[in-house]
Simulated assay, not measured.
Amino acid sequence: MTTAFYPGSFDPMTNGHLDILVQALNVASRVIVAIGVHPGKAPMFSFEERAALVRQSLGEVLPDRLGDVDVVSFGNLLVHAARDHGADLIIRGLRNGTDLDYEMQMAGMNHRLAPGLQTVFLPAVTASQPITATLVRQIASMGGDVSAFVPKAVRDALKKKLGR
């Protein structure tokens, strides 16, 4: 049984995140979605809200795989959190060459810190390449339609959170 650790802020979950999660489930039998929690940052959604949105979003596309996904928080080094949860792989999504340059650096450092922990890069589908959670938050907060960028559960949560 292979366990993958998929870290991110997921604030909010986007279609790009969901695409990478679905791909990760093709690579690993179990995926731990690891939501980074940092005391100095004020996310739009709480950890609990983000965790629920990850589950709801996956449930929209792969309800039969919900049992293969855990959602946890972490605030320590990624490699330590991955090891604490018994992960064999770290999953990272790539949208473009800039992501690849950054992620290669991170994978190299993570390998030095935890040599047995393998990083796997998964490419974003073309439609997801321009999507970032930051842009989604900005568009939604200014009254824009983010339906094309997020799962339905996230769209509804954004409308509720922003009073729309």
Rank of each mutant, 00 (worst) to 15 (best):
Y102Q: 11
M109S: 13
L117Q: 08
V146T: 10
V136C: 11
I91E: 03
T134G: 13
G97N: 13
A140P: 07
I131H: 10
V150P: 11
A81Q: 05
G108L: 10
A114P: 12
A107Q: 04
Q138C: 02
Y102F: 14
M109G: 12
A140W: 05
A82W: 12
A148Y: 09
V120L: 15
A127R: 14
P123L: 13
L122F: 09
R95S: 08
G143S: 00
M104F: 05
A148K: 13
G97D: 12
T119N: 04
V136F: 09
D145N: 15
P115Y: 03
L135D: 12
V136W: 07
G108V: 10
R83K: 14
D99K: 05
T126I: 09
R112E: 13
P123I: 01
T119L: 04
Y102M: 10
A148I: 04
A127W: 02
H85A: 11
L100S: 00
T98D: 14
I131C: 09
A81D: 04
M109Y: 13
I91P: 05
R112P: 03
L100A: 07
Q129G: 04
A114T: 07
F149K: 00
D99G: 04
L122S: 06
T132Y: 14
D88W: 00
H111Q: 15
G97R: 08
A87V: 08
L78E: 01
L113F: 12
A81T: 10
Q118S: 05
P123V: 00
G108W: 12
S147A: 15
L89T: 09
L117F: 09
G108N: 14
R92N: 11
Y102N: 10
A133W: 06
R95C: 09
L122I: 08
G143R: 00
V150D: 06
P123E: 02
T98F: 10
M142T: 15
V125G: 14
T98N: 14
G93A: 07
D88S: 05
S128D: 14
I91W: 05
D88V: 00
G116P: 08
F74I: 04
L122D: 04
R137S: 05
G93M: 07
F74L: 05
Q138P: 00
P123M: 14
V136Q: 08
I91Y: 03
